[in-house]
Design a protein around this nucleic acid. Structure first.
Lengths: 198, 198
DNA sequence: GCACTACTACACTCATCAGTGCACAAACCT
DNA sequence: AGGTTTGTGCACTGATGAGTGTAGTAGTGC
């Protein structure tokens, strides 16, 4: 049972870095410190191993993302809270492991369409729902004017990320906390101007 | 010389659909209606063929994108022009061929980092520059209040695309003109509320 | 006619890699 | 101790696929 974790860790690393086909099970096993035969004793095939890896990674991303998008609402001025939330959102989505997973799944979406769709629903979908819920609470409290929380959540999310996400998919080395934060703050401000009450 | 075009067309199709490794030169040649030897007479290697394909695709995308983001400024009310421009932008970026190219390059960014970076600069970079330039003109004319056109262009672009781009990368079948247009219009409106003059 | 270029058909090499079979070793219960 | 689970080492198969060599054909220009 210890081997299983070793294999999954090494497999995650390999798949994320080299994609599905680019991953070689001989070197993967060597990196895991385990014989290739053990890999095949634990997982029926490369395909099954890939599914296991993506399943675990999805859970982690799900967890990570919901941990970072909690927090009470209404304790401080709305614009201040929006800014804080925007920074949390930007950092959660642009975390290197999250970006790496996205790149992998986008690259393999042709081969594993179901996995990509599941991931989209469980991770970005959950983020969007968390944002919409928060915006709806502001709206009920009369703090913002957000008649369509789902649409506004979509706008908030991408206003805050801007080209940061897009660019990181092409070039992960472009990731940079300072610009993530700057974009998040500017995005929150623009959102507030567009959606403030009265 | 006719063969070259046949090979490039078939290669584009194959690479975009199956990725670099997933593309088999035997079947590619057969689809091009050409012998495999001819492919190797025209291109030194699969790698060189891939570069040629991406080079051509990048040019096409560049052209496509600039064709669709032209248009005079100031003839009609700003909010109306913003809406029209937003729709043009959304349609240009979410065109199936553009999305397919993105997915390919993101998937192969590990293997061909330079190609991905070049593409990013030449296509999305050009779009962003076109938007910033347009916003700067509105600002000079006193029609909008856009002190930082580059930042605002980033916001405009992703407010208009929203999750449409993101989702299409995971699942191209999610593309849908009606929702692209709806998101573009709502994005333009929110942008206008955030950046209108006075 | 002749020469040259573009292209073909096809058999071949060589490397890579998923997956298997098997005999054997170590670690763990009880 | 004795049995069971868990893992090892390694040689092997079989398929796939990039890239080559070569002899020969079709068209083009002169």
């Amino acid at each position: 049972m210890r081997s299983r974790a070793l294999v999954l860790d090494a497999a995650t690393e390999h798949f994320v870095r080299h994609g599905y086909i680019g991953t070689n099970l001989d070197t993967l096993a060597a990196d895991a410190g385990v014989s290739k035969r053990t890999v095949y004793n634990l997982f029926r095939s490369k395909d099954e191993l890939f599914h296991a890896v993506i399943g675990r990674v999805t859970e982690i991303a799900e967890q990570f993302v919901s941990d970072h998008l909690q927090g009470e609402v209404g304790a401080r001025p709305v614009d201040v809270e929006l800014r804080e939330f925007a920074v949390a959102h930007g950092r959660a989505v642009l975390a290197p492991r999250v970006i790496a997973t996205r790149r992998l799944l986008i690259g393999e979406a042709e081969r594993f369409p179901q996995l990509a769709a599941d991931y989209y629903e469980r991770v970005p979908g959950r983020v969007m729902a968390a944002i919409a819920e928060r915006l709806a609470r502001y709206h009920s409290a009369g703090l913002l004017n957000v008649p369509h929380p789902d649409l506004a959540a979509d706008q908030f999310a991408f206003l805050v990320l801007g080209s940061g996400l897009d660019r990181a998919l092409f070039d992960p080395s472009s990731l940079n906390d300072a610009s993530t934060v700057a974009r998040a703050l500017a995005g929150a401000d623009a959102f507030y101007r567009a959606y403030r009450a009265n």
